[in-house]
């Protein structure tokens, strides 16, 4: 198994996972989406709210704000030394004390810790008009995507099989397949003597239109054990950390399974 990164920026990454069983590719995807812990506000105390929105709507909106996470400093609440009661090593609180007229942004939250703060400062939460006031204490904790989608470290996380497209020798260069392909995978312009070549195999969606249209049956598409992953992070964790953490979690789960099987046999 090997991972090759095709392109990446701050929030997006595309990589190919080579020679892996499809079950592993899928469990990798699921681990990234639902097992990597990140922080989100899960509990708020509303001391004063005279805005036009109900407390519950505010709580929901505040909960969805992504918060920068440092996994080395925080524990999951159920594994923490405090036994789930809440202590500085498993939760962090934000205070909000504003008076209108003003638009309240996510950046207005005052954090206990300078490093743990909302990823974006300009998410509008509520608009306060003259005389309206808001006093809120929000408590963030670690959680996993299985519990609530606000704890997901990635938004888009998907893979597809990278196919192998073979053009056999009995091809008569009729170019019907080039026109049939909706994703411009095949081309004949770049090659000498007008032969059809595979230009962009990663773009292929395995729709098989080219196979259907080929009268000579000269195109053969087979699935390989390589997968093209497209992952888009939300920003709580760097996307590469999400990947390594997901693999660590998968490994520990597999080891646990091994132990269980050894006990039975």
């Amino acid at each position: 198994m090997k991972i090759e990164i095709i392109d990446e920026d701050e929030f997006n990454i595309r990589f190919i996972l080579y020679d892996a069983p499809i079950a592993f590719a899928n469990s990798f995807r699921r681990a990234m989406k639902s097992l990597v812990p990140v922080m989100a506000v899960d509990y708020i105390d509303v001391y004063l709210n005279s805005s036009y929105l109900f407390d519950e709507i505010l709580a929901h909106r505040i909960g969805l704000i992504p918060i920068k996470t440092d996994l080395s400093r925080f524990n999951m609440q159920n594994e923490c030394v405090c036994g789930g009661e809440g202590c500085p090593s498993c939760q962090i609180s934000f205070r909000l004390n504003v008076e209108g007229p003003k638009v309240v942004y996510s950046g207005d939250f005052v954090s206990d810790d300078e490093e743990i703060k909302p990823v974006y400062d300009n998410i509008p939460i509520v608009e306060l008009f003259k005389g309206q006031q808001l006093m809120i204490e929000a408590v963030a904790r670690l959680g996993i995507g299985k519990e609530h989608s606000k704890f997901q470290p990635v938004s888009i996380c998907a893979y597809k099989i990278v196919p192998e497209i073979k053009i056999k020798e009995n091809c008569n260069d009729c170019k019907a397949c080039v026109e049939a392909c909706p994703r411009n995978v095949l081309d004949s312009k770049d090659s000498k003597d007008g032969k059809i070549i595979v230009k962009d195999v990663l773009n292929c969606s395995l729709c098989m239109e080219c196979v259907k249209v080929c009268e000579e049956i000269a195109i053969e598409i087979t699935e390989t054990n390589n997968y093209l992953f497209t992952v888009e992070g939300i920003g709580q964790l760097p996307i590469k950390e999400v990947m390594t953490k997901a693999l660590e979690i998968l490994k520990s789960k597999a080891e646990e399974m091994n132990k269980l099987i050894e006990e039975i046999v």
């Binding site: 969805l64 638009v103 509008p124 888009i156």
Partner: peptide
């Protein structure tokens, strides 16, 4: 310019920071 959904309903990507 408030009450704009913080995240996309379908994919969960944060969008509200681009609203203004």
């Amino acid at each position: 310019d408030q009450m704009f959904p913080v995240r996309c309903f379908t994919c969960g990507a944060v969008i509200a920071h681009k609203w203004e």
